[in-house]
Amino acid sequence: MIDGFLALYIFMLAAFTGYEIIARVPVILHTPLMSGSNFVHGIVLVGAMIALGHAHTPFEVAVGFVGVLLGAGNAAGGYVVTERMLEMFKSSKPDAGKETK
């Protein structure tokens, strides 16, 4: 589907992108960022959906079903946890006048 070398280029550029994004992050954001990247690889859900969609035997379907369950957990859980962590940064901003939340 994807040409091998094209995939290699994607791989290389994406790796540099990931490295650059993190390179200058203050320590204070390490935990939220780890959680955020944990959420981003929740995209595995899409792969699990495709795998289940192409599964034929009952056993394959069962494994694929578990895969989708786990992937959905990764995506949803990762989002909620990250959002809750970052919510605190928002409410604590010294210049934020609105404390209503």
């Binding site: 995939a7 791989f11 994406a14 990931g18 993190i22 981003v40 995209i43 899409v46």
Partner: peptide
Amino acid sequence: MIIAGTVVGAAGTLL
């Protein structure tokens, strides 16, 4: 998946 996974892989390694 390739892009998101690789970005996280690189970022996670550095982290």
